[in-house]
Structure formats: structure tokens, C-alpha cells
Amino acid sequence: MLTDFGKVFIFFLIGGLFVAAGLIAAWVIRPKRWYPSKLSTYECGEIPVGDAIVKFNIRFYVIALIFLIFDVEVVFLFPWAVVFKNLGMFAFIEMLVFLSILFVGYAYVWVKGDLEWDKPAPQLPSINSKQLKISTPQTTPD
């Protein structure tokens, strides 16, 4: 007897096995001649600069928070989608009410500009005419 999740579990096991077998086979077969540029991190052929852990911009976080709410909404949609064909028009209207309430929130974040990808204002280079010194703007990495 194999339930549906039993099949999922077998997929999970074979997937793990596949990855492990590939890595182990590569480890067994490959020639082991290391040198520094081979051991360096692959960055599309460029010489890697700095740390892999960089500070992300805060606007990712706001988008992620908004995403989380709609993620929960999808979980509520899921059982409805299974049964709504049996329950007919009533269930459809119920879900429309549910979605329209959340649509208010979507409209709110849209109007308030939380979905805008606000870029920092461009800092143009200014020329001091007396000293003829070009000051370049200090750019901070996002």
C-alpha cells in the first residue's frame, strides 16, 4: 500500500540519493590537482571581490513581508479550490468576498508606495570652479 505522500517520500529519497551519488561519483573519478585559481570561488570568470555575505537593501524586506501575507492567502485558497466545484456559486462568491477584503490591503500598499522600487536620489558630480577639482559622489553599495 502506497499513499500519495508515500510516493512523494520516494521522490524525496531518490532526489537525495541522486545528488549524493553524483557528488560521490565526481569525487571518485575526478583528478585531484589543486591550485589557487582553481580553488577560488567561481564568479563568471571574474576574480572574486569581497565577501559573499553582503548587506541587502531594506526594500527587499518590505516586499518579503507583503509577500508573506499573500502566501498565507494562497494557503486559504487551496482547500477552497479543492471543493468549490461541488459547492457551486455560493462558495465562489464567498471566496470573492475573501479576496476583495485582501485586495483592500493590496490597494493600500500600492497607493502608499510600498511596492515602488525607490532608488536613492542620483548625486551628480559637482565642479568647484575655483579649485577646478572634480568631486565624485560617494556611492554606497546596496
Binding site: I66, L68, V104, G105, Y106, V109
Partner: peptide, 8 residues
């Protein structure tokens, strides 16, 4: 909805 508006 409340959570969304509050979080935003």
C-alpha cells in the same frame, strides 16, 4: 488585512 497594513 490588518497584518498586511500593520506590517507595511
Amino acid at each position: 488585512l490588518v497584518a498586511l497594513i500593520g506590517a507595511a
